[in-house]
Design a protein around this nucleic acid. Sequence first.
DNA 1: TCAACTACGTAAACGGTGTTCACTCACCTG
DNA 2: CAGGTGAGTGAACACCGTTTACGTAGTTGA
Lengths: 249, 249
Amino acid sequence: MTEATRRERLRAETERDIRRQARALLVEHGRDAVTLRAIAREVGITAPALYRYYDSREDLLRRLAEDICTDLAAELDADLDGIDEDDVSAQVYAVCRGFRRWALAHPQEFTLVFASTEDALGSCTPDGRGQVGDQFGRVFLEVAGRLIASHPLPEDLGHDAPENLHADLAAFQQVLLATVNDRGVAVDASVLPLGAVYHITQSWVRIYGHVALEVFGRFPFAVSNPEPMFDSMLAQILGEMGFRHLTRP
Amino acid sequence: MTEATRRERLRAETERDIRRQARALLVEHGRDAVTLRAIAREVGITAPALYRYYDSREDLLRRLAEDICTDLAAELDADLDGIDEDDVSAQVYAVCRGFRRWALAHPQEFTLVFASTEDALGSCTPDGRGQVGDQFGRVFLEVAGRLIASHPLPEDLGHDAPENLHADLAAFQQVLLATVNDRGVAVDASVLPLGAVYHITQSWVRIYGHVALEVFGRFPFAVSNPEPMFDSMLAQILGEMGFRHLTRP
DNA sequence: TCAACTACGTAAACGGTGTTCACTCACCTG
DNA sequence: CAGGTGAGTGAACACCGTTTACGTAGTTGA
């Protein structure tokens, strides 16, 4: 049955174990506690053995960040599974709330993936596309693309997009189109106007900004219950896109 | 003249030296390079001597963060000095652009102060008010308060502030009032409606979000020139507050 | 079947880290 | 000038990432 040799199976198992223990150390004691020796101790091997799996500690952390992106994407996908496929605004709520919930529950992972300088970690997408963690980005882009395409948009949406950003926005528009089409929904550029693409970008700024401020405790005053504030922001973002009367699931 | 004894003068000088060298290490090689032994080497003492000045490495980093806040505030104050005292929108541009410029020029310091979990660093304000770095916050709050007070605001500004946030907003309103009044401008709560206070909070979310995304390279696509995007966001924030036709200095 | 090869894991070592401890000695105070 | 205080030291401890040489179990081909 299994094509893999015994050695390959053992190796795969050890590698899973390494990542699991590294992840546990990150979650419980922070990035600095993700130590080659500590991981090895938990796995039951010695530290130099880890060099058979990773080039360096930095390399291990990079792979860890990729795993985190993948798991986050899976979590958000699971959230989306329970939602009506045609109710795009509910999908937006689910993904954004899921992102916030995940970030607050896993601040160390959030910091590693979403608040590390590129030279300290390297991008999640080593092909240099400069995207947010690829798997996570896929989920977000998918919902964003469907959101734009599903609804007649206000005419002046994103009218203030700077002109010299048009080329970048056009490139992003293509990525959005490709992401949506990958899911079998056929749309073309005409339903994804650049103004709307710009608005999506601005929305990501706000969503990320709120979540990061909450995780890092850097709001200008003590917010006793930030959740309604987040929901209110989502409602405003959707409202600006023309979703005036919407349910807040 | 100098009340201080010789010993006290030497101590103060050494402490300044320690912080200067620690700061240089942070700027040039990142947080992990801020090593007690490296600092001591630069200062010309041994590592254990640093324990006469700080309880631990963590304590030193906390003090460093406070210094950074103070210096950033001084830099922004200097930016404000060159601006007409009555042109509040120009002041907003100056402070926000100054913050962005500083963050991009000092990513390591930005990460330490604005993108560290509280348990990894402790708040800049040890009195637990949960504010952004106190000195920096003062400058921002001052401009924000004057911005609100200086202008007739749209009636529906911040109409979507969640109800259960009113208590927090009222507290922040008092802080804003106190900050503005400290500068000798007498205003009362009537010119600082809660809706406007909420809008200020949302604006901080956007400004912080943009800057952090740029520093960490986590925009959803490669932005070849983010500066006009930032300026455009500022224009929109001011526009929502009623500054329809404004110069962009 | 058996020799040759591959790759996982090891112990030892190097230079680095934060931190503690006992100690010296210049400085300040009475 | 005696006594106390506090800045700084060197040695030590337990860690850390990484490299090296080496043993050995698993695999492969003749």
